[in-house]
């Protein structure tokens, strides 16, 4: 069993101006090295959950612990060193005048000596494949590139966990692919734990585990295969089903034998090809 990095116990959070809580008695765990996708419709509580994890909001009830520290006013700064967050809008999180200044910003705040800073900036930008853009200004970058710089800014701080809060939802398809590809590599090579908050089901299908949020509660959790068995229920929750799952189901209904549910287009194509020669 992998090491537990984050644990939430019975967390409840209510915004001041709201009549009902945004999160109701949430309990969950996140394990080292896993990619966890948290999905849910707008207003289901998933972004509130992200803010709870790194102490941007403190729950009114329940306990949050990250890397063994229980979250409180005293520990919040240590916890933030462990968790990096990438937000939705690429333009709102670019603070430097050039790519390398932007990545250095966080390191300066953390008081990293200049020599170490230089190597860390270069390493981080190399990991997201933006090292040939060191002196570029933000307005010369695409949305996907800006988000990768944002990820580099976090990597340079060497956290254990990265939270992507709808980090791909404002990007074009190419930008989305760039960011997801980067995250996938980081997870494989550096064993970074990834929590991605999204309503892109194709993105969630690539995760190790999915938590489905609905009205401030955990509706279901499981592997992508298990979650996509929910089928029509997901649509009822304001979500969708990945295309290969939808098509696979429709094909089965016309009498084409498929051995299981397929989450990627490649797998479904391969299955159809094989089954064709069995018929």
């Amino acid at each position: 069993m992998a090491k537990q990095l984050v644990a939430l116990e019975n967390v409840t959070y209510q915004y001041d101006d709201q009549t009902s809580p945004a999160l109701k008695k949430i309990s969950l765990e996140v394990f080292e090295g896993e990619w966890l996708a948290i999905v849910g419709h707008n207003g289901s509580g998933k972004s509130t959950l992200a803010k709870i994890l790194n102490g941007l909001q403190f729950p009114q009830e329940g306990n949050v612990s990250v890397c063994g520290h229980s979250l409180s006013e005293e520990t919040v700064w240590d916890i933030r060193k462990q968790i990096g967050m990438v937000f939705q809008n690429p333009d709102n999180q670019f603070v430097g005048t050039t790519v390398q200044d932007d990545v250095a910003f966080g390191l300066e705040n953390a008081g990293v000596p200049q020599e170490a800073m230089k190597t860390r900036v270069k390493d981080a930008l190399h990991k997201v494949k933006m090292d040939s853009f060191l002196d570029q200004e933000p307005h010369h970058l695409s949305g996907g590139q800006k988000q990768r710089v944002a990820i580099a800014g976090i990597l340079a701080l060497r956290p254990s966990i990265i939270i992507l809060d709808e980090a791909t939802s404002m990007l074009d398809p190419r930008g989305r692919e760039e960011v997801i590809g980067t995250v996938k590599e980081l997870k494989q090579q550096d064993r970074i734990t990834v929590i991605s908050i999204t309503h892109d089901l194709e993105e969630a299908a690539k995760a190790d585990r999915i938590i489905v949020m609905n009205q401030g509660q955990i509706h279901r959790q499981g592997s992508p295969e298990e979650i996509f068995q929910m089928d029509e229920e997901l649509i009822g929750l304001g979500l969708d089903i990945p295309f290969p799952v939808k098509l696979g189901k429709m094909l089965r209904e016309t009498g084409i034998p498929l051995t299981k549910q397929f989450l990627s287009e490649e797998e479904l194509v391969a299955e159809l090809w094989t089954s064709h020669y069995k018929i």
Partner: peptide, 8 residues
């Protein structure tokens, strides 16, 4: 529809 969930 940027930023909206699938139903929205």
């Amino acid at each position: 529809t940027a930023g909206l969930d699938p139903r929205g």
